[in-house]
Write a protein that binds this DNA or RNA. Structure first.
Lengths: 116, 116
DNA sequence: CGGTATCCTGTACGATACTG
DNA sequence: CAGTATCGTACAGGATACCG
């Protein structure tokens, strides 16, 4: 994943953004964290049908790239929260725009196919 | 690819956007077309180290989703151009924002790693 | 609760060779 | 020029079982 980002740097900044934020679930995760920190289980339920394995992978990648912060509370049972950094909040705005864009331009395309 | 988009509709609009625009090279392709239509070969050179096979795939997907228009001029040798639709132009703006975001927030992360 | 380990399938993508 | 066909590798991501 990091290697992908590194080679993207030699192409263009947009491709870097795609490498960092383009994975499945990543932008959805970020958007779910705008309202405030969430715990792992809650985040998994809110994000959609994502497996624990994949969610963990994506969260770790987002953490490595400085998009969110993982906090472990030393309790039993375990308690872990995820919250956005400034970088993550900025990314969340782009995620929202992408969502609006797909509602406006993509949904009609597929609705038309379903009708026809 | 279309199946991925269809299932994304059942999750959230952001995930639809990722499914449609999140593939490697797609946003870069779109950004290269903002200045005006380009031919296949030119686009391939401008986009970066993308193979003809992948570029073709991505262009077809973008066409299917109404993001760009492919025009074939019946000449010898063949002449094909790609140009953005309104949808594509709107997506290009988001692509630019993502590029700016990565320059501002991601580059420092990796520069710091390279230094350390 | 918040993961990890293992296995598995599907697909993305590049390289190369070829074509109308 | 603008692709297509074929092959091969890499990795994403789900399912399941298990752990501190």
């Amino acid at each position: 994943m990091r290697n992908k980002v590194r080679s993207a740097f030699e192409v263009c900044p947009i491709e870097v953004g795609v490498a960092v934020a383009g994975g499945d679930w990543k932008l959805t995760i970020v958007s779910k964290l705008v309202a405030g920190p969430l715990r792992f289980g809650r985040l998994q339920r809110e994000a959609g049908p994502v497996s624990a394995k994949t969610l963990t992978r994506q969260l770790r990648a987002l953490e490595d790239d400085g998009i969110l912060i993982r906090t472990v509370y030393p309790e039993v049972p375990p308690h872990v929260t995820y919250e956005l950094t400034e970088s993550g909040a900025a990314l969340a705005e782009i995620a929202e725009e992408l969502g609006d864009w797909s509602e406006r331009y993509i949904r009609p395309v597929y609705d038309r196919e379903d009708a026809g």
